[in-house]
Nucleic acid binder design. Structure first.
Length: 823
RNA sequence: GCCCGGGUGGCGGAAUCGGUAGACGCGGGGGACUCAAAAUCCCUUGCCCUCGUGGCGUGCGGGUUCGAGUCCCGCCCCGGGCACCA
């Protein structure tokens, strides 16, 4: 047992003991109530950085707290071990990504251990383990069989830097790759997709019941982007309104069918399939060159060309009949209409849509208002509510009624109907990379795409590949992997060489943790039923859309195909998103070169001080600047606790009857317990630490007072302090507990202290006396004071009398804290 | 443009239900201990002045209320998300 506080020795010893005693290993049939807490499994990039420390400090606090409150806590850790950095390192160094990755995992694991975070390491998973690959592939095949995975040729996002296609979610708003920053181009490739759009409505509806930060819920709602409106057909015609001989019709989606009388032109996306068929011969050359230009232009350039709208659209020479007016309107192509949203075609109503207004002005098209703008309106397009005008049978109706009436009319005419459209697109999962989970299908000239039978899983990439900067997966060049036989007909066939997006791996790892050694299935449904949904998920807000949306989709889809129990519709009941660590306003990151290495601090002040500093600096959800992290103050606090708990402060305690001071200390102890417990429940760790500091200061004053401390009151005060600090500063509290109770005593096996209700009420309280709402005096009064006594005492105050002449008009009393006189 | 957060001392932050604004910590000032320093311990610390039984004070302007950091209306600023989504 250490005599002086030596964090390195203490921390190493307790970390070893937690591992030896298997304190935090938990079985699925544990009789205690189950609690599943999970930090997002990390990509193994080497030693932990401050963001990890912060994340695992919060996670570990919950594990230890919930264990002390009597729960069987599932606390697993794993590694999101597929991904681009390992493959890029392989290209640079020639080393296999597995060797590189396994080293990074060991570095990260050892720094996670050093902060004292505890896990059930028996359950560790790694995305690149063959057993995990098998699970990922089996899930893929089941989704394929259920029609939830499919292949389609489509223009996809291609990142020239990463040499791969990207999901929409990985393309930033400015059209660049979220990883490399390169402008993303469009390419036509046959790719695998998951049908997440089938779940758009469920994903939207179920957000409501999640205990997630409102910010994250809003981001998901926006991403799904539901909009209600109508779809209808516009018949192709000539400039005089005569029907086109081929009878083509263009279907458009609009949220404002009520404004249809104001449609003065229509627009197709450049990629729209009808473009060649409808374009007038004399306009063909110009139209095709426009289409070519639009296709060659990356999204980033499409956006930057804003302002030159005349160049961004072209007339097709064709017309469409506005079914509401019966009149022909010109049909344009414009790159501001997206082929991937709605029907890829719009009716344009310049008076009620600013983009249409701008385009109409640039091209000299008519503008007809169908909603009267408010009095004094000096803007251009008006999209708000108002009374319809110029709209025949819609005139006089408001916006909402107008929409309903227009839809009724479309349905009665048989040319359209109400329609809900989502912004969410299907999830493109193919990646032309090596270091990912292979897509387990075979391409056969006779049979087409053939799934690899489940009993032949996993399909694992070979090791003897060459990593060259060719921009192609080395799998394509590996004859042994590429050439195989068709599982269906036995003929020669080629393996799929694309791998899956690593977000596929992270979409089910939380399920695997419940049953990590299952060789038959990714996981057993009963095991999942015992733990899911995750009671507390913790991670960075940067995953608010991608990972969290995909994991939700997987949970629903896997439940629908019978892998996950039907009752589990959501993976994460409660989500907490922690703030970022900044240094001088910048995000702390390797690429910015402004990292503060946790190791140095662990070597100096120790893990407990670092953990407390992270907890104390401010609300966990807020970003923190490293400069404001009060490491010294927390280290000082720990040494105050150290001396106090070892009886090195003040006079020696004695056995005696309780004095008022003793009773007051005991009351303070129980108020502290209540405060910390409440703060833990509401994720207010900074105030929990503050409450512990405050109590420590009170105990210091108590033991240094004129009277010797009473042993019972002092022991209770110190024990309670150690117990509530145990989840926050686990090593030093364990050491001090063993010092006080014997070497076998284990503080983390103790029950969480419970505040006695009878102790929470102080004997005397501060009564605030106000006159006209201003504080004029404060009086110490017995807690059980009556209203009459309180008012009498307040009236007797000279300070009150100075501001109150005569009788008050009104007296407001809120016992026992407030008496307020109204003059 | 739309949607979320947020704005409180020199600094990080607290105030949980409309009731003492500034808990706790950092930093500052003073003192004790010491030959001295470090460490430690104690006191003090929103601003202003005519120093009182004083005034002001939670981004700005209004309002509700006996009483507003907290509720309502209108702005300003900062951070984040989404954005030719028809």
């Amino acid at each position: 047992m250490s005599e002086v506080y030596d964090p390195q020795a203490i921390e190493a010893r307790w970390q070893a003991r937690w591992a030896d005693e298997r304190t935090y290993e938990v079985d699925n049939d544990d009789p205690r109530p189950h609690y599943y807490t999970l930090c997002m499994y990390p990509y193994p990039s080497g030693s932990a950085h401050m963001g990890h420390v912060r994340n695992y400090t919060f996670g570990d606090l919950i594990v230890r707290y919930r264990t002390m409150t009597g729960h069987a806590v599932l606390s697993p850790m794993g590694f999101d071990s597929f991904g681009l950095p390992a493959e890029n390192a392989a290209i640079k160094t020639g080393r296999h990504p597995r060797a590189f990755t396994d080293e990074r995992i060991e570095e990260l694991r050892s720094s996670i251990l050093r902060i004292g975070a505890v896990y059930d390491w028996r359950r560790e998973v790694r995305s690149h383990d063959p057993s995990y690959i098998r699970g990922t592939q089996l899930i893929f095949l089941r989704l394929l069989a259920a029609g939830l995975a499919y292949r389609k040729e489509s223009p996809v996002n291609w990142c020239p830097g990463c040499q791969t296609v990207l999901a929409n979610e990985q393309v930033l708003a400015d059209g660049t790759c979220e990883r490399s920053g390169d402008p993303v181009a469009k390419r036509d490739l046959e790719q695998w997709f998951f049908k997440i759009t089938d779940y758009a409505q469920q994903l939207l509806d179920d957000i409501d019941d999640l205990e997630w930060p409102e910010r994250v819920k809003t981001m998901q709602r926006n991403w799904i982007g539901r909009s209600e409106g109508a779809e209808f057909d516009l018949d192709l015609c000539d400039a005089d309104g005569e029907p086109h001989p081929d009878g083509h019709a263009v279907r458009v989606f609009t949220t404002r069918p009520d404004t249809s009388f104001g449609m003065t032109y229509a627009v197709l996306a450049p990629e729209h399939p009808l473009v060649p068929a409808v374009t007038a011969p004399e306009r063909m050359e110009e139209v095709l060159s426009f289409v070519e230009r639009a296709r060659a232009t990356s999204d980033i350039d499409r956006l930057s060309s804003e302002g030159s709208l005349d160049k961004r659209g072209v007339f097709t020479g064709a017309h469409l009949r506005n079914p509401f007016t019966g009149r022909p309107v010109p049909l344009y192509l414009a790159d501001y209409v997206l082929s991937s949203y709605g029907t890829g075609a719009i009716m344009a109503v310049p008076a009620e849509d600013q983009r249409d207004w701008d385009f109409a002005v640039a091209h000299g098209l008519d503008i007809v208002r169908t909603i009267a703008p408010p009095e004094g309106w000096d803007g251009e397009a008006y999209s708000g509510d108002g009374v319809h005008i110029n709209s025949e049978w819609l005139d006089g109706l408001g916006k909402v009624d107008g929409i309903a009436a227009a839809i009724t009319w479309l349905e009665a005419e048989g040319i359209g109907e109400a329609k809900v459209t989502y912004r969410l697109r299907d999830w493109l999962l193919s990646r032309q990379r090596f270091w990912g989970c292979p897509i387990p299908v075979v391409h056969c000239d006779g049979c087409g795409v053939v799934p690899v039978p489940e009993d032949q899983l996993p399909v694992v990439a070979p090791d003897d590949v060459e990593f060259l900067p060719t921009g192609e997966s080395p799998l394509r060049a590996h004859a042994g992997f590429l050439h195989t036989t068709c599982p269906a007909c036995g003929a020669e066939a080629r393996r799929e060489t694309d791998t899956m997006d690593t977000f596929v791996d992270s979409s089910w790892y939380f399920l695997r943790f419940t049953d990590p050694h299952n060789d038959e299935l990714p996981f057993d449904a009963d095991a999942v039923a015992r733990w899911l949904p995750v009671d507390q998920y913790i991670g960075g807000v940067e995953h608010a859309i991608l990972h969290l949306m995909y994991a939700r989709f997987f949970t629903k889809a896997l439940a629908d195909i019978g892998l996950v129990p039907p009752a589990v519709r959501e993976p994460f009941r409660r989500l907490f998103t922690q703030g970022m660590i900044r240094l001088d306003g910048d995000k702390m990151s390797k690429s910015k070169g402004n990292l503060v290495a946790p190791e140095e601090i662990l070597d100096r002040e120790g893990a407990d001080a670092l953990r407390l500093a992270h907890l104390f600096v401010g609300p966990p959800q807020d970003d923190v600047d490293w400069e404001s992290v009060g490491l010294d103050g927390c280290a000082r606090f720990i040494s105050r606790i150290w001396r106090l708990a070892r009886g090195e402060i003040g006079s020696a305690p004695v056995e005696r009857g309780a004095t008022a001071a003793d009773e007051e200390l005991r009351s303070a102890t129980h108020r502290m317990i209540a405060k910390v417990t409440e703060d833990f429940e509401r994720w207010s760790y900074n105030t929990a630490v503050a409450a512990c500091m405050e109590h420590t200061n009170a105990v210091y004053r108590y033991v240094q007072g004129d009277d010797a401390p009473q042993r019972a009151a002092l022991d209770e005060a110190v024990d309670a302090l150690l117990l509530v600090l145990a989840p926050m500063a686990p090593h030093v509290t364990a050491e001090l507990w063993a010092h006080r109770r014997g070497a076998d005593a284990h503080i983390h096996a103790e029950a969480w202290p419970v505040a006695e209700a009878g102790r929470l009420v102080a004997d005397t309280v501060t009564l605030v006396v106000q006159v006209n709402g201003k504080v004029r005096d404060t009086l110490e009064v017995p807690a059980g004071i009556t209203e009459e006594e309180a008012v009498a005492l307040a009236r007797a105050s000279e300070k009150v009398a100075a501001h109150l002449s005569g009788e008050p008009r009104k007296v407001i009393v809120k016992l026992p804290k407030l008496v307020s006189f109204v003059a």
